[in-house]
Design a protein around this nucleic acid. Structure first.
Lengths: 250, 250
DNA sequence: CGCTCAGTTGAACCCGCTCAAGCTGCGTGG
DNA sequence: CCACGCAGCTTGAGCGGGTTCAACTGAGCG
């Protein structure tokens, strides 16, 4: 037998429930969404820039990222996504993808037809609100990254990014905010922050030497959270984390 | 007597209709939204960072911008908004503002209670979709700006920005794509692009000397659109402009 | 007429980039 | 078992795009 928590869509429910618990009918409607499962190896594409996206994609496990590639080959990573995220409402609702979405690690996904997503959103208001909010939070993170890249110096940018990851990993139940596993190369960190991998390397060393973080093979340990947050000019507001977690964490 | 086009909310209808024409009932529902009118002088605030936003704001005339201010006083402008834009769905739906919204010029706005916006969105699906799309397009622009700031050199950034403004002004009926009035200082252009006003000045000179643009007191003339687009690594896809305009303009 | 604010230009500095080499760990195949 | 290749990390040296600081100009306005 299959209970709600067994469904491949369960991670989606967890995410949607985070803000405000959905009632039984809403939850049932979400679990009743049609889907097809797939696994994608690290570096594989979920959507390519320019594709016409017909499905939204729920990230069931692993990590993914959004990315824009420029004509000269440089690329900007726009955001990182954790399991439970609806990773491509952005592209699928707008239809033609203005950015690519790729697997950071090996991932398991569930594709849900665009029309079905819209249908459940507008027949179950609480679900629709939760999904809309999700896309708005994505946008809030885009804005913060824009400010990060545009206005802060290299060390500060990296410190900020690590703080964000800490809180988001914790909120997703993937670690503690001061101890989590980040499957990203220094080059990818550079693509998030508008820096070269060489400079990322040097600035991470600075953070290490200041006794703020210790990173070994993707395992991030934030030694002094308060100091790192200060060094990264980090305030959590833009993440719009649910209230309980916000209260619990400070 | 008051006809539909007389309503202060008419600019909103125009925007919502751009993608897909709303039926009469949907349009009536939009025009029936409760609102209060106000005017705000240039530099005045629509929302301050940290405020709890209870109203969404329709920009009826003039220009506004979103902005994040950092602890050290530096600031990042995240987007520019033209008349007709619902300028603060982002903040009002998320409730506590993670960024400020300010008047670029003197503006006229209509405040609409958050709850009324949500109500019409979920009782009139076409309206809800149009508003959701609007917020997604905002997000697409955020991503492009992120890539612009993170990956492109100063001249290219500015050329890109001017191309974007051209198309958006044209789409909003505020000018031609190669001739429009931009009420922004060079300092503000710098805040959009992560550059100093001094460097903006020099790079605009480069664009002028290359015969690409001519800017005099806010009046932008794009002398050679094709070359500027090339110089700015500009492709219009991310703006997700309605199809007719896309077809008409190329 | 003097204030302020935006634009303009110059000169020196520095943050982050580029290029390049060496290093480490790991999987593969001999 | 070592040899090899590869990918990511590390470190050095030199360069350059953009900043900083500062002075000057010109337009708008009380």
């Amino acid at each position: 037998m299959t209970t709600a928590t067994d469904s491949p869509l369960a991670p989606m429910l967890k995410k949607l429930n985070a803000r405000e618990t959905l009632n039984a009918a809403d939850q049932a409607a979400v679990l009743a969404l049609p889907y097809s499962l797939r696994t994608i190896p690290a570096h594989g594409y979920i959507v390519r820039e320019g594709d016409v996206a017909t499905h939204s994609c729920l990230l069931r496990s692993g990590f993914a990222y959004r990315q824009k590639t420029l004509r000269d080959g440089r690329r900007q990573i726009c955001s990182i996504h954790l399991s439970g995220d609806m990773v491509d409402l952005q592209n699928s609702l707008l239809r033609v993808a203005d950015h690519g979405v790729q697997a950071l690690s090996d991932i398991a996904v569930a594709y849900i037809p665009r029309e079905a997503v819209l249908e459940v959103a507008f027949t179950h208001r609480a679900v629709g609100e939760a999904m809309w909010y999700d896309t708005l939070i994505d946008a809030a993170i885009f804005r913060e990254w824009m400010a990060n890249i545009g206005q802060r110096s290299a060390v500060v940018r990296l410190a900020h990014l690590l703080c964000e990851f800490g809180l988001r990993f914790e909120a997703a139940g993937l670690g503690e905010r001061d101890s989590f596993t980040l499957p990203m190369s220094q080059e990818q960190l550079g693509d998030c922050t508008g820096l070269t991998s060489v400079h990322v390397n040097r600035m991470l060393r600075v953070l290490r030497e200041r006794g703020l973080v210790a990173i070994t093979k993707g395992a991030v340990r934030i030694v002094d959270w308060a100091q790192l947050a200060r060094a990264g000019d980090f305030t959590r507001g833009y993440l719009h984390l649910p209230a309980e977690q916000r209260a619990a964490a400070d």
